[in-house]
Each structure stands twice: as C-alpha cells, then as structure tokens.
C-alpha cells in the first residue's frame, strides 16, 4: 500500500520512528505518511511527541531507529536545509522570524533559501505577500508585528519556498476566532494553489475537524489511531488518551 503511494510521486513518510532524549522515550514507534494534495491532522496530548516527529521529518532530529522517506527515497539523516530544498517546509511553534529583517525580507529569504536569485525571489515574495494579505506590512520590521501577523509571516516565508510538503506546528495557537477562520481559508488555499501536502499539528479541534482529510493520533510517542475526522471522534482509544481511563 505504502509503496504504491511512493511510486506516484508525492509522499513524505515516517516509518517506525524512535527517538530518545537522555533515556526518556520521546517517540517509540510512530509511522505516518503524508500525500501530496492532502491535509493530515496530527493530534495528541501534550508531550505525545508531535513536535519531535515534525523535527524528525524535517531533519532537525535524527531518529535513533526508523527512517524517513521522501517520495520513495530514504532521506533519513539528511540535514534540514537539504530537506527544505527538496520541498519540505515547516513553521515553528515559536514562529522564529528573522526579527531584525523586514517582513518582505523574511519572505524573500524563503525563496532565496531554495535557490532562487534576487530578482525571482523578489517577485515570488511580492506574490506570496499579496496572497496572505501582508503587502501593506511588507516594510515593517518582523519583530515589531502583532502576534497573529507574526504567524502569518511565518507561513508566508514557508510558502515562498514553494514546498511540496508543508508542516505547520500549531499555527492557530494564540489566534482569535477571526484569525482562526482566516487561517483555515489560507490552509485550504495552500492545498488548492500549490498542490501541496499539509501536516497540521493543532490543539484547536474546530480547526482540525474542519480541515483535515485524515487525522493521525499520537500518544506517548506511539501512533495509536488514524482515520477520517468522524472515525477519530468516535475512537475510544483517542478519548482515553485525551481524557484518561475513567471517562470512557
């Protein structure tokens, strides 16, 4: 099943990934695959290993066991910038903008990072800023932005890379309801316009349930369930993981 998917071009996969931090198991046996043109939700209680898994998929964390596959090629151990150039982009929970640079330069850096020259990078930055309604902020310093816009610039920077896979680490955290709605539109738009697979880590269930084609559930570093939103909502293991034994 998985090899068939790999053959048609677009998948990002984690296979039986294990990660330990000084003896503590952060991930012990997580496997997921993300296809192009799909939105996959990644949920789980705090400490389930969601961000660690994203770090493994983007090359920031080397797995102790298991492997990462990009469109049928084993890319375990590749560096973050190599994976980024191969089309895997991400955002960070802590946003991590280039604080002293302008919004425009932040977004342009995404295009420059994947190898574009200044001229084309500038065009692409303009395009993405228009798209995400940031054009009026282009000359503002990134570290002077309000929180919601900061997050949007983080997504814009990743989009300027024209990724095939985009991993969003809690993009809705701290956003108000209106901003959440906007974010939902943006993510739908990303799939439509870029033909890009989106992995979405999120605690906001309205965002997750409303957007995702499939949802993958991690608990204590293990993949415990995967399926359509309606299946996940009904799954007793998931309830147990979130609410504890007593509530089931």
């Amino acid at each position: 099943m998985q090899s068939v998917r790999a053959a048609d071009g677009g998948t990002l996969e984690a296979r039986d990934v294990h990660v330990r931090f000084e003896g503590v198991r952060a991930i012990s046996g997580a496997s997921l695959h993300l296809g192009q043109n799909e939105i996959l939700g990644l949920i789980g209680p705090n400490g389930a290993g969601k961000t660690t898994l994203v770090n493994v998929l983007t090359g920031f964390q080397r797995p102790d066991k298991g492997s990462v596959w990009l469109s049928g090629r084993n890319v375990t151990g590749r560096t973050p910038f190599q994976l980024a150039r191969d089309g895997v982009a991400r955002t960070f929970q802590g946003v991590r903008l280039f604080g002293g640079l302008s919004v425009f330069q932040n977004v342009e850096a995404g295009a420059l990072g994947v190898g574009l020259g200044r001229h084309r990078a500038r065009e692409r930055a303009d395009e993405v800023l228009q798209w995400l309604n940031l054009a009026s902020q282009a000359m503002a310093r990134a570290d002077a932005l309000p929180f919601g816009e900061e997050r949007r610039v983080g997504i814009a920077r990743a989009l300027a890379m024209r990724p095939r896979f985009l991993l969003l680490d809690e993009p809705a955290a701290g956003l108000n309801e209106h901003e959440c709605d906007e974010l939902r539109d943006v993510i739908r738009d990303i799939r439509r316009r870029l033909d890009c697979g989106v992995l979405l880590i999120e605690h906001n269930m309205a965002v997750i349930m409303g957007l995702c084609d499939r949802i993958h559930v991690l608990d204590q570093g293990r993949s415990i369930a995967e399926g359509a939103p309606s299946d996940i909502r009904a799954n007793s293991d998931v309830k147990k993981a979130y609410l504890g034994e007593d509530f089931v």
Binding site: F81, R90, L97, F98, G99, L101, G113, V114, G117, M161
Partner: peptide, 21 residues
Amino acid sequence: RYGRRLRASRENEVAALATGI
C-alpha cells in the same frame, strides 16, 4: 542572494536552516 541568506541566518539560525539555507 548570498548576503541576504547569510543575514537571515544571523537573525535566526534554525529558521534559516528550515528555509533551505
């Protein structure tokens, strides 16, 4: 482009790596 990429990494090394620099 070289200067711009390096200046981005000056601001945030991790984010620079994540953007392919």
